[in-house]
Design a protein around this nucleic acid. Structure first.
Length: 540
DNA sequence: TTGGGAGTTGTTCAA
DNA sequence: GTTGAACAACTCCCA
């Protein structure tokens, strides 16, 4: 038997050929390489991953397959539980090496640990690399001095980021020559085996309805690179981009729209980072973090680090950085929000865009998240995060949890008295309500004066617009002025209670300290007690 | 230990 | 149209 490895490169995120260290590791000295994607039934559920995102995934796989075929290879799509599917191929293909990019989501971490153990049991070499973030999340934690010492503000994260040094360069995509040449291949039959083709949405149990959904972001690395290059050509725009100055309700995205590609790894964050740096180098007055495009990548980095370091990051309970707030549970309110029936056109238009396109401008996400939680409906951020996680084409576990905690004043941000108005906020950038008219056509005929508050239109106006409020479009589900004031008071009470508890704990710690010294307890015992108290108090 | 400064992206109203 | 202050007062971080 001739030498050389038989590799599986396991794609999960990182659906790209450029800047793919794990793929390059699979190719190195290999006589045969199987680029594999496993369609895990864990994710293939419409109630868990919405059709827009699943479609994006399949398009990305198709693009990957196409690119690999130009290099004399292909993508092997397997179906089923990843461990089972892989083990089958380990044996059948006589695999000697498994490579993949590290993934820091809880489900992925467990899956990958098990996959590594399984591979090693079969005597297979396992190589993993880091490529989903600019730096390895482990490095941030190590540099900070432990998971419980990570910075929890953006500016202190910035210091940590700089301490890690330069962002590694993006690697080039492999060429045809990097792939095993056909003469060395052990087997070629699988190259044309249609069982490994990318399935259709229908094959995966999804229904696509053109009336309900729209592809705003075609999946794949090819599209990702094209989009990035297209934006980079507008150098002045790139250089002076400031996120808070972009509008949440333009009919075309006012931002780069690269988030879905970063989520699936169709675009390398390192490549984007260095490409931006090249443009910045030409402009002395370029924008800076946190508002610049570099700043956006740093936010992503910051939240990835937090999600990696903090246990139960996607929940309130057992999450040391999340404030415990007495959210209400009202399924009717939650459903009205989710289904765009709050009676506030700005909120409902946003939710319609989310359901239809799987995407919303960042500030629109703020508006609807604030509305669901501390602003109006006082429902738990976890519920909202679950809806976003299902519907967003760019849903990222770390960013989603972090942003929901932010908007609900559960962590990172605490100025609960700053509430987005479901009427005024959208008006600032779209006074005539073109955005609302697009997503809520039933309100199309309302004059500008009433488009954000149609319930204020006199009955005659409603009749002439062909839309009676309370019949053709809902009445406002809550009175914003009333509930937002009440909610502020509730959050304030929660904060106060937490402050009191904190105070009490501090006193206890003090007492423990002084009595510990007096009674000459063993140092190990007292330090254990102190540590425990510290952990408890940091839970807030 | 404590106080001051900073914090990507609020709203309303007056000048 | 833009700017600034008042609203009420949050936390984290660092010196």
């Amino acid at each position: 038997m001739s030498g050389g490895a038989v590799s599986i490169h396991w794609f999960r995120k990182g659906l790209r050929l450029h800047d793919n260290a794990a793929l390059l590791a699979a190719l190195k000295g290999a006589k045969q390489v199987y680029p594999v994607f496993v369609l895990d039934p864990h994710f293939a559920k419409p109630e868990f991953v919405g059709v827009v995102r699943y479609n994006f995934l399949l398009e990305s796989l198709r693009d990957l397959d196409k690119s690999l075929r130009t290099l004399g290879s292909r993508l092997y799509v397997l179906k089923g539980k990843p461990l089972q599917a892989l083990e089958e191929k380990f044996k059948e293909w006589e695999v000697t090496r498994l490579t993949f990019e590290r993934d820091t989501e809880p489900y992925a971490k467990l899956r990958d640990t098990q996959a590594r153990e399984l591979a090693e049991k079969h005597g297979i070499e396992v190589i993993t690399t880091v490529g989903h973030t600019l730096h390895d999340p482990e490095q941030y934690i190590a540099k900070a001095g432990g998971a419980d010492k990570i910075p929890l503000t953006y500016s202190s994260f910035g210091t940590l980021f700089r301490r890690l040094g330069k962002v590694p360069a993006a690697l080039s995509a492999p060429t045809k020559e990097d792939f095993p040449q056909s003469s060395t291949l052990v087997r070629t039959d699988a190259l044309d085996d249609h069982r490994f083709d990318v399935p259709s949405l229908k094959d995966m149990g999804y229904e696509w309805n053109d009336d309900e959904h729209e592809v705003r972001f075609p999946g794949g690395e090819t599209e990702a690179l094209e989009r990035m290059r297209r934006h980079l050509q507008r150098k002045a725009w790139i250089a002076h981009f400031e996120k808070p100055k972009t509008s949440p309700n333009t009919l075309e995205p006012s931002t780069t729209g690269l988030s879905p590609y970063l989520k699936f790894g169709c675009l390398s964050p390192r490549l984007f980072y260095h490409e931006l740096a090249r443009v910045y180098a030409e402009y002395r007055d370029h924008a800076k973090p946190p508002v610049s495009l570099h700043g956006q990548l740093l936010w992503r980095e910051f939240f990835h680090m937090c999600g990696y370091a903090v246990k139960n990051f996607d929940r309130m309970e057992g999450n040391r950085i999340c404030r415990q707030i007495d959210w209400d549970t009202n399924d009717a309110l939650l459903a009205a929000w989710e289904n765009a029936r709050t009676g506030y056109p700005w909120i409902d238009a946003c939710m319609t865009q989310l359901r239809r396109e799987g995407w919303l401008h960042h500030l629109a996400r703020h508006a609807v998240a604030c509305f669901l939680t501390r602003g109006d409906l006082y429902q738990s951020w976890e519920k909202g995060a679950q809806v976003f996680d299902r519907l967003l084409v760019d849903a990222d576990w770390h960013l989603n949890s972090a942003n929901w905690m932010w908007l609900s004043c559960s962590s990172f941000f605490y100025q609960y008295f700053r509430v987005y108005s479901p009427v005024a906020f959208g008006k600032k950038t779209d006074p005539s309500g073109a955005y609302i008219r697009k997503y809520l056509p039933q309100l199309k005929a309302f004059p500008d004066k009433y488009i954000y508050e149609p319930w204020k239109a006199p009955p005659g106006v409603q009749r002439s617009c062909g839309c009676i409020i309370g019949k053709d479009y809902p009445e406002p589900i809550v009175d914003h002025a009333e509930v937002s004031a009440a909610n502020k008071a509730r959050i304030r009470a929660c904060y106060d209670a937490l402050k009191q508890a904190e105070k009490a704990k501090k006193t206890t710690t003090k007492d423990a300290k002084s009595s510990g010294g007096a009674s000459k307890r063993s140092s190990a015992q007292s330090s254990a007690k102190l540590k425990k108290t510290k952990t408890a108090s940091s839970k807030r």
